[in-house]
């Protein structure tokens, strides 16, 4: 087991380096002169050569490429870079925005797991019934609605419509979370009332596609598990239906589902950008987007690396737990 973990961490480091290099090349080495871009604020104003030269010097853009690569690399790993455009330290950004992203992601996962698994199991148990058809249909549609459309739609209903038509207090939600206040969270993941109101909509929207996938996946694995041979053996042993259902069907069916949810965590962190934009949730995603638009390299690199690291660790955690869940799996290099 230990060998396995070490190997995977090593592999992860290589992947991160590779990703870093790729991003560096794409954002930096290929496109046109970054100094001009920055000096002219991406072409929105003309910059005199003097200004461009100043920018170059300040940002160290006049140094040879490999030196710049190394600088960026060390900066990123130590989180000591500064934004090209605002000169805000990267470490501050991470400190502020990472918790916000994590909170959103955790809540989205809770929704995804509970509603997704719940409806999937329901669907499978009552296959072919009305409940099944409705749930499947809802799942399919949820997978097709773009996150940003869904986001605005919800805002439209609960934020605008509700106010205009004077819905009861609890049904009205603020449209935009300008009031995100990290100090009002307990134990990192428990929000107080107002914060919860701000959180719930983006969490639902972010979770929508994943919930749909989990629901359908659960349904499929449940249906498969229900017809497995060992279920027949369990019944033949005289176990009650409830026990068979829980210990022999559900337990086996959930293995792929839990795996998916684990991997999804990493994906959600990276994907949250759209949701964050819609609801103006101050997370990593939206910051990366703006920075990328401005070719603000240090920010892009540092934040991307953070996200990739989380994604890689989440995958590793999933693989380890998968071995615990399904004894048939032998981890490469273990045992």
């Amino acid at each position: 087991m230990a060998v396995f973990i070490v190997r995977r961490l090593f592999s992860l480091v290589i992947t991160l380096l590779g990703g870093f290099a790729l991003l560096f090349i794409l954002f930096f080495a290929l496109p046109g002169d970054p100094a001009t871009k920055i000096a002219s604020n991406n072409g929105s104003k003309n910059a005199s050569p003097q200004v461009v030269a100043n920018v170059e010097k300040r940002l160290g853009l006049d140094k040879p490429i490999y030196e710049q690569f190394w600088n960026r690399l060390t900066d990123t790993v130590t989180l000591s870079g500064e934004s090209y455009t605002t000169r805000e330290p990267v470490s501050d950004m991470v400190k502020q925005r990472l918790p916000a992203s994590l909170r959103l992601a955790i809540f989205a996962m809770l929704i995804e797991a509970s509603i997704g698994i719940g409806s999937g199991v329901l669907s499978a148990r009552r296959r072919g019934s009305i409940a099944d058809t409705i749930t499947t249909f809802a799942a399919v549609i949820a997978g097709a609605i773009p996150v940003f459309v869904l986001g605005y739609l919800i805002t439209l209903v609960t934020g605008v419509y509700a106010f205009e038509h004077h819905w009861p207090e609890w049904a009205r939600f603020p449209a935009i979370s300008n009031n995100y206040d990290p100090s009002q969270w307990y134990l990192f993941i428990i929000p107080n009332g107002t914060q919860f109101e701000l959180l719930i909509q983006p969490a639902i929207v972010l979770a929508s596609v994943s919930t749909a996938i989990v629901a359908r996946l659960t349904r499929t694995t449940m249906l498969e598990a229900q017809t497995a041979d060992h279920v027949r053996t369990a019944r033949a042993k005289g176990l009650s239906d409830k026990v068979v259902s829980r210990k022999h069907v559900l337990r086996n069916a959930l293995i792929p589902v839990v795996t998916f949810i684990g991997i999804d965590f990493g994906t959600i962190i990276g994907f949250a950008i759209l949701t964050e934009t819609v609801f103006q949730w101050p997370g990593l995603g939206s910051k990366v987007a703006t920075a990328a638009g401005q070719s603000d390299l240090p920010v892009v690199l540092a934040l991307s690396m953070v996200v990739m690291l989380i994604y890689g660790l989440a995958n590793l955690a999933v693989d380890i737990s998968y071995a615990k869940l399904d004894p048939r799996i032998r981890l490469a290099g273990a045992k």
Binding site: I14, T15, L16, G18, G19, L22, L23, L26, F27, L30, P31, T267, I269, G270, F271, I273, L274, G285, V288, A289, A292, G293, S295, V300, S304, V307, M308, Y311, G312
Partner: peptide, 22 residues
């Protein structure tokens, strides 16, 4: 496959942004 894994490790949006930049 290593190349594919690296590219897959990068969050989709960021990768898309990267390509758009180029």
């Amino acid at each position: 496959m290593r190349f594919v894994d690296i590219m897959l490790g990068i969050p989709y949006i960021i990768l898309a942004y990267a390509f758009i930049t180029v």
